[in-house]
């Protein structure tokens, strides 16, 4: 736990934690509103977004890609809504039509354009590169106080931290309207709350989290963290505040355990290569959800007897 840990593991773990929290917070409300799969849809359309951004600007740099991904996410949400209303199609199928089509378009554009000399591919968008976000300048815990070393932090870390912070603050500010609109939309509307605007704001927050996170950690973690920690937290309690707290705990636990298992687990087992951290974090999140499904105190539907 010395210099090497700070150099190679601290920043990826912190980025993983922030990304997980940023996704898990809006995930709580998405699950309550039965919109859990909007996160799935958004993280699929990130690919066409970054490809189009690359084709427009001609470079692989952070901000154009983030903007492209965000635009693609909003376009996808608008298209889903349009298909649902114009075609009178149930939301799940509308989502399936839109995000698969956009993803197919993204893959086609990627194949058509000359991206052989830049690091831009489907697997990267899916799996991220968490392991490579290391802090080379650090030489121990003391570097945390050293401005020269701090300036060399991977830019993903402050970006992800800011995104997580913004989402947390927004959630606290809009806590009451969010809660009301998620549990009883009719009642919220009767109170005069702008229900549609709240729904749109929530989806936008989810898109911000997904877009900020995919670059560092890939789409898998994004989808897993939108759903697994909040779903596991829902098994633990009937209070929304407590549920959100549990979801943050589970998100942190998944990120830390997942990264450590991916980095050190194979070595403990005698293998030489580490495995994908993104995949392992999703796996750990799934294990936590599985345990919560089996033993969580509030796992049953209200009114259904235990074992029923």
């Amino acid at each position: 736990m010395g210099a090497e840990f700070v150099q190679f593991s601290l920043t990826p773990i912190l980025i993983g934690i922030f990304a997980s929290i940023a996704c898990a917070l809006p995930g709580n409300f998405l699950i309550l509103r039965r919109q859990a799969l909007i996160g799935d849809a958004i993280s699929h359309v990130v690919l066409p977004g970054i490809v189009v951004a690359f084709l427009v600007t001609g470079v692989v740099s952070t901000w154009p890609m983030l903007i492209g991904a965000a635009v693609a996410a909003l376009v996808a949400v608008a298209l889903i809504e349009a298909v649902r209303r114009l075609g009178r199609i149930e939301p799940g199928a509308a989502m399936g039509v839109v995000f698969t089509s956009l993803f197919a378009g993204g893959v086609l554009l990627l194949e058509q354009s000359d991206t052989s000399n830049v690091h831009l591919d489907v697997e990267h968008a899916l799996m991220g590169n968490l392991e490579q976000l290391i802090w080379l300048r650090a030489d121990g815990w003391g570097s945390l106080l050293d401005p020269v070393a701090l300036a060399d932090l991977p830019p993903e870390l402050p970006r992800m931290a800011v995104a997580a912070l913004i989402i947390a603050v927004l959630m606290l500010v809009f806590w009451r309207p969010l809660k009301l609109a998620s549990f009883d939309e009719g009642f919220a509307r009767a109170l005069g709350l702008p229900v549609r605007l709240i729904g749109l704001g929530l989806v936008t927050a989810a898109a911000v989290a997904a877009v900020a996170a995919f670059d560092a950690v890939g789409s898998i973690i994004v989808i897993a963290m939108f759903i697994c920690p909040p779903a596991a937290a829902r098994m633990m309690t009937n209070h929304l505040g407590v549920q959100v707290a549990w979801s943050v705990v589970f998100a942190i636990l998944s990120a830390v355990l997942g990264y450590v298992l991916a980095g050190y687990g194979p070595i403990w087992l005698g293998a030489s290569n580490s495995v994908s951290a993104a995949g392992m974090i999703a796996t750990v999140a799934g294990l936590i959800l599985g345990l919560a499904c089996l033993f969580g105190p509030a796992r049953h539907r209200v009114g259904v007897a235990a074992g029923g």
Binding site: I31, R34, Q35, A36, L37, G39, D40, G92, I220, I221, I223, A224, F226, I227, C228, A231, R234, M235, A278, G279, M280, I281, A282, T283, A285, G286, L289, C293, G296, A298, R299, H300, R301, V302
Partner: peptide, 19 residues
């Protein structure tokens, strides 16, 4: 469990893919 189908779909999808 009390999870609705869409949450369960997302959980299975992401966890199995992660594995």
């Amino acid at each position: 469990t009390r999870l609705s189908e869409d949450a369960a779909i997302g959980a299975i999808l992401s966890v199995f893919f992660g594995v």
